[in-house]
Design a protein around this nucleic acid. Structure first.
Lengths: 250, 250
DNA sequence: ATCTCGGTTGACCGAACGGTCAACGCGTCC
DNA sequence: GGACGCGTTGACCGTTCGGTCAACCGAGAT
């Protein structure tokens, strides 16, 4: 029995303990070039990168281990040696993006300033991340029906929600959680959908949503929307017009 | 060669020319006979329904023909007999939803009224449809990376976009298309994401987004957002207020 | 020099895949 | 009665799937 290294216990639990995937991204000369041995990039990083591209392009269920191995230029068995099974590989890809996501937003969430400045910084950083990682966003959306993926993705959304909740409670403390959760979905959707629906949008509206002219237009729009909402919340807070909740016509 | 009915020419191209799925009543002979062989539902309808459930639950690539046949309680070969191949089955499911989508919004798009009333009616109807067809919305989002699906889905979005474009140009004619396309994504995202992200949202916020208490809250929020935006647009179009008297739009 | 051990390989497995095929039951029309 | 054609069936095809296995390799440690 050859005893697969760390995956003996990785098969039953969930975390396959991905090897160091950092260092430099490396040139990645050509796909599927038969590298002599592991130089610069470690093998698992090559697999991870190939899997990332394929998952984002076609979705989890449509990618086979053979595809990943071919793209990475390694033997198929290595995929299972390093990541246990396909699910482990998928979660490793998600985990890697989670890290990029967290880092991309860390600054925007940490710095101070007044409510407006913080919100602007957040939507800016969020739009930056999503527009440069649109394929990842699409991958997550593609897994929205899969309950097993929710726990992984929840980690990315909760801090965002907490931030918006705290920030909005500051400017409109008597609105309660309702305004926070509603605006969280509205704002995050305003950013995310522009990026995930980009290939479809380009057919409906003219131009490419993820390239400068339209991307800047989107940024300006979301900022305008944030201002609009904050103005309304402040106005409502200053003039305590208690009854405003319109109880929907139906 | 037994010559599959209409799919002989469907093998080489891509569109499998789905059989008419709308003719539930007997074709032309024996109009009053209560379906001699197949009871109640015709076989292709059973397949279509099973496929719909499975596709929505797991995504296109994760569903096999055997799964569909087993769920529908029919022989696997019938899937290919009626729909040519898996892609044809998938497109038939999409087409069926497109019909429901179109019908669900037809009234809201057709009736008149002022801009505010029309927009309120639209977002109401859109939220109604999406909240009751959240799985379909998720299925479409899951196929967002697939270029071949875009053409099918585009049909649903374009009339919606045109409606918003026309309506907004009425209240803010000097904003151009920019405002229209930006607000189209913002509003549609505000409705769609609440429904597609529901399983994930229920983990971040408390409660179920698609059941009455929170769904009504969402409806009120989107209506509030529409009002906020329309107010801002009207305010911005102060100078050329000449066009006030209900210009005949259609 | 031998042993160990993590990384690597190609061959291999059973299952499941999408799709096909010949045959059949049965109602319809000549 | 007989030919016909549609819907249906179970067996079947070649391919690919996720995953396993024994063997192998080169570098350190002894």
């Amino acid at each position: 029995m050859p005893s697969p290294p760390t995956h003996a216990e990785a098969r039953t639990p969930k975390r396959p303990v991905v090897r160091r995937a950092s260092e430099r991204v490396a040139p990645k000369t050509s796909p599927a070039t038969p590298r002599p041995t592991d130089d610069a990039e470690t093998t698992s990083a090559r697999i991870l990168e190939a899997a990332e591209e394929l998952f984002c392009a076609s979705g989890y269920a449509a990618v086979s281990a053979g595809d990943v191995a071919r793209r990475a230029g390694v033997n198929k068995a290595l995929v299972f040696y390093h990541f246990g099974n396909m699910r482990g590989l998928f979660e490793a890809v998600l985990e890697r993006y989670y890290e990029a996501h967290r880092k991309g937003l860390a600054d925007a969430l940490a710095e101070g300033g007044d409510v407006r400045a913080r919100m602007h910084r957040l939507v800016d950083a969020y739009l930056d991340f999503m527009s440069t990682h649109a394929r990842y966003a699409r991958l997550v959306q593609a897994q929205l029906s899969d309950a097993e993926t929710h726990a992984l993705v929840e980690k990315s959304f909760t801090p965002l929600y907490r931030f918006i909740e705290e920030t909005l409670l500051e400017v409109a403390p008597d609105e309660g959680e309702a305004a926070a959760r509603q605006l969280f979905v509205t704002f995050s959707g305003a950013v995310i959908n522009w990026c995930t629906y980009a290939p479809l949008l380009s057919r409906v509206i003219g131009g490419e949503p993820l390239t400068p002219p339209l991307l800047d237009e989107r940024r300006a729009h979301v900022r305008w929307l944030v201002d609009l909402v904050l103005d309304a919340l402040e106005r409502r807070a200053v003039a305590p017009r208690a009854r405003r909740a319109q109880p929907s016509r139906r």
